[in-house]
Design a protein around this nucleic acid. Structure first.
Length: 269
DNA sequence: CTTGTGTCCTGTAGGC
DNA sequence: TGCCTACAGGACACAA
């Protein structure tokens, strides 16, 4: 849990090692100024919206982090080893620092002033419902699927439909719901949509319970450096050529919406 | 409006 | 052994 570690701390130092991960404001100088004002900026709380992590700061400011595919946050002890691929560092008043580690440098960091709504975060404001929030269900999903002319996998990856679901969790939810990723979203029965809504919720809750997915080639880490453990509970993702754990059929892949999609040809129809 | 495609980035894996 | 290419992933700009 990162929040109890950060809550009540103030920011004593900001370093940017890679300029292009700062998405807002436009310059690194302005970004640092927002976090190192005349008075020390304090950390109030941590929140999440879809795939964005929101660090609530004093003076109504927000530090927003998107890890994209290979990023993670590391909380480094005083005198601890500097992480490889460190892009941004937030020094804390207790001598520790929060490090934004992102090997592929695709992740982004934003610092917003009170009430600011930059164009570069339009995607965040247009986000759909959270599958794990109260009120998300087959009714909502069916409404969002209506009139869509895309495959269900493509629609699930659209953050405006439901947020926080990426390639791994969409494949896993589709497997659990028994639906092939190539099915047209608008052609799913209400029974199937209900099952999909339920399994999206379950998969995300399981992902949270098992602290995320650290793949062999991936670098995702928890803030204390430990790996997630959901990868050992995956049913189809990354398992092309393996036997399905339910029926033994060989797991297949197919490119849908530009993404490799994994499915069991027997369990999913 | 919707939908599909290319781009960003870099470590890793696989081919020759 | 070493070079080269393809690939992975999420968001977004852009084209159709």
């Amino acid at each position: 849990m990162l929040e109890p570690e950060l809550q009540g701390r103030t920011i004593s130092d900001v370093r940017v090692f890679r300029e292009d991960v700062i998405a807002h404001p436009r310059t690194v100088r302005a970004f640092i100024q927002r976090l190192r004002g005349r008075r020390d900026i304090g950390i109030l709380a941590l929140k999440r919206r879809g795939k964005y992590l929101i660090i609530e700061l004093t003076e109504g400011r927000q530090l927003i982090v998107h890890l994209r595919l290979s990023g993670h946050l590391a909380l480094v002890a005083k005198g601890g080893e500097t992480p490889k691929y460190e892009r941004v560092r937030l020094g804390l008043d207790d001598g520790r620092y929060l490090s934004f580690v992102e090997p592929r440098a695709l992740g982004r960091v934003y610092c917003l002033l009170l009430g600011e709504k930059p164009q570069s975060l339009a995607g965040m404001r247009a986000m759909g419902r959270e599958p794990i929030e109260h009120g998300f269900g087959g009714g909502y999903l069916a409404e969002r699927f209506r009139g869509r002319r895309s495959k269900v996998k493509a629609v699930l990856l659209d953050q405006r439909v439901c947020c926080g679901v990426g390639n791994i969790y969409s494949d896993e939810a589709l497997f659990r719901a028994g639906i092939r990723p190539t099915r047209m979203a608008a052609n799913l029965t209400r029974f199937e949509v209900n099952a999909l809504a339920r399994e999206l919720r379950r998969v995300l809750n399981d992902g949270i319970r098992w602290c995320g997915t650290t793949m062999d080639d991936g670098r995702y880490r928890r803030p204390d450096g430990r790996e997630g453990s959901f990868q050992s509970r995956l049913a189809v993702f990354g398992l092309e050529g393996h036997g399905c754990r339910e029926c033994g059929s060989t797991i297949r892949t197919e490119t849908v919406a530009g993404r490799t999609s994994h499915y069991c040809p027997h369990c999913q129809r």
